[in-house]
């Protein structure tokens, strides 16, 4: 029997005194693309960060390809391909090619950068990119991680099209939908959400299947 690529069981997350995510359970089968939607502030990023181990959930378990993961440890983050919602710029000049190399597969990241139209920016400092260029570079990095050795075939991205132009939104949607790997995609981009295999929505702390 094959395990789900990602399985999350009764995850509870708090932020300050507020319960942001309550008893969330879901699974991604291999190759399955799931959109996670919900209003601003409904807790999508919080849920993602807890799954990745960037923040410690109050409760809950996370399994990657059937293997239990230590809650609140960044082990999951290291094993998947990831793009955060808030993209960092760094305090010292950091070049785009250095960022792409950190994906674990520089060649694959560079190739994705080419597909996303940012290959020509590799020698520029990250801090000097436009918002959309930065998003494309981080996406290329995440796609490089998917091809890096020792990673689970899972992409976790938080609003991957938020800063993109119209053509870019469609291109990235094509690219994501065409991936063989499983993907958990937080998005407000309705066409992208509709093209995923399944849509989950978060409201008032509760995770539900969305139509």
């Amino acid at each position: 029997m094959t395990h789900p690529t990602l399985e999350v069981v009764s995850l509870h997350c708090v932020r300050g005194r507020q319960i942001v995510v309550e008893d969330a359970s879901f699974a991604l089968q291999p190759g399955e693309h799931v959109a996670l939607t919900g209003e601003n502030g409904s807790g999508k990023s919080t849920l993602l960060r807890a799954v990745l181990g960037l923040d410690r959930p109050r409760e809950g378990r996370v399994y990657l390809q059937g293997r239990p993961q230590v809650p609140g440890s960044p082990a999951v983050l290291r094993q998947v391909a990831w793009m955060p919602q808030r993209l960092p710029l760094g305090r010292f000049p950091f070049r785009v090619d250095e960022l792409l190399a950190s994906s674990g597969n520089r060649a694959a990241a560079l190739e994705s950068a080419g597909r996303l139209g940012v290959r020509g920016l590799v020698s520029r400092p990250v801090a000097e990119l436009s918002g959309g260029q930065l998003q494309r570079v981080f996406l290329a990095r995440a796609l490089g991680s998917l091809a890096a050795p020792g990673r689970a075939p899972l992409l976790v991205v938080d609003e991957p099209t938020a800063a993109l132009d119209f053509a870019g939104q469609a291109e990235v949607a094509d690219l994501l939908v065409g991936l063989d790997a499983a993907a958990l995609i937080v998005t407000h981009d309705e066409p992208l959400a509709r093209r995923c295999d399944r849509c989950l929505s978060l409201a008032l702390g509760r995770l539900q299947d969305a139509p």
Partner: peptide, 14 residues
Amino acid sequence: ALVFFDREVALASG
């Protein structure tokens, strides 16, 4: 260089 760029990106890079 990665830690100075961003701790979380550094973590994700192993």
